[in-house]
C-alpha cells in the first residue's frame, strides 16, 4: 500500500468536520501551507486545531479562522493575529492557551506512548487550576496529559516514499513532535524522493509515524518579521 498521495486535495479529502487536527510550524515557519490551502478550499469546519500559533490574519491558520472553520484553538502564543484576538475576546472562538513546552511535550508523550507528563510550567498560575499537582524532590509539578489527535498536518523539507522525513533549520520546531502524535499523520514535503535516497542516519521522523505523504507546491514561505543588516555599500 503506498503512502504517496497525489496532492493536497486528495490527502485531506476524508478529514471530517469536527476533527482534532495538529498543525506543525512556529509562527509561519514550517507550516503545512498546502494542507491549509486545501482545507480552506474544501470548507472543512468545526475543527479543533492544536498548533503553537494561529497564523496571521491572512496566512496560515488565520485563513481558516477568517472563514470560521475553527471551533477551538489550542495554542501557546496568538499575538500576531488580530482576528483571532477579536474572536477570542468576543467568545466566538473557544481557546485553550497552554505553555509552549507543555504543548511540545504533550505531543512527544503521545508519540512515545506515555499517557502523561509532569512539568513545573504553570504551577501557581491559572494554567494549573484544577490539575493534579505532584511534588518531586521539593518542587511542584503539574500533570499534563498526552494529546489525542485525529490528524497531524506536518511540513518537512525532504521526504521519501517510505514516509521518512527531514526538516530544515528552525522549520523543524513542532513538526516531528506532531508527526508522532496523531492517529493519521499527513506530511507535505518540498521534495519527495524514492525510498533509499535519504541517508538513514539523517532521518528526523521515521516513516512508521507517517501515514500519508505528498509533494507540496507553490510554497510562499512568508516571512513574518523581516529583519536585516544593511550592507555598507548600500547606505
Amino acid at each position: 500500500m503506498t503512502k504517496v498521495f497525489k496532492n493536497e486535495q486528495e490527502v485531506i479529502d476524508d478529514l471530517p468536520d469536527g476533527a482534532v487536527v495538529m498543525l506543525g510550524g512556529f509562527g509561519l515557519c514550517g507550516i503545512p501551507e498546502n494542507c491549509i490551502r486545501a482545507l480552506v478550499a474544501k470548507g472543512t469546519k468545526d475543527l479543533t486545531c492544536i498548533s503553537n500559533n494561529a497564523g496571521v490574519d491572512d496566512f496560515g491558520i488565520g485563513l481558516m479562522l477568517q472563514r470560521r472553520q475553527v471551533r477551538k484553538m489550542i495554542a501557546s502564543y496568538v499575538g500576531e493575529n488580530a482576528e483571532f484576538e477579536r474572536q477570542l475576546l468576543s467568545g466566538e472562538l473557544e481557546v485553550e492557551l497552554i505553555p509552549q513546552g507543555t504543548l511540545a511535550t504533550r505531543c512527544l508523550a503521545a508519540g512515545y506512548g506515555m499517557p502523561a507528563i509532569f512539568t513545573p510550567a504553570g504551577v501557581g498560575t491559572e494554567v494549573g487550576m484544577g490539575k493534579e499537582v505532584r511534588n518531586f524532590n521539593g518542587k511542584d509539578y503539574l500533570m499534563e496529559y498526552a494529546f489525542e489527535a485525529d490528524y497531524a498536518l506536518v511540513k518537512a523539507w525532504k521526504g521519501d516514499t517510505a514516509g521518512n522525513l527531514v526538516y530544515r533549520e528552525t522549520a523543524r520546531n513542532f513538526n516531528p513532535l506532531m508527526a508522532m502524535a496523531a492517529k493519521i499523520t499527513i506530511a507535505e514535503v518540498e521534495e519527495l524522493v524514492p525510498a533509499g535516497e535519504l541517508d538513514p542516519d539523517h532521518i528526523h521522523t521515521p516513516g512508521i509515524y507517517v501515514h500519508r505523504i505528498f509533494q507540496g507546491r507553490d510554497y510562499e514561505k512568508r516571512i513574518e518579521q523581516r529583519t536585516v543588516r544593511k550592507k555598507e555599500s548600500n547606505v
Partner: peptide, 23 residues
C-alpha cells in the same frame, strides 16, 4: 524563511550552532 528566532525575526547562525525540535 526557514531560519527565524522566537520573535519570528529572520536571523543567522554562528559556527557551532545546532537545530532541534521544540520538545
Amino acid at each position: 524563511p526557514d531560519l527565524i528566532n522566537a520573535g519570528k525575526q529572520t536571523i543567522t547562525t554562528v559556527p557551532g550552532s545546532a537545530f532541534f525540535d521544540s520538545a
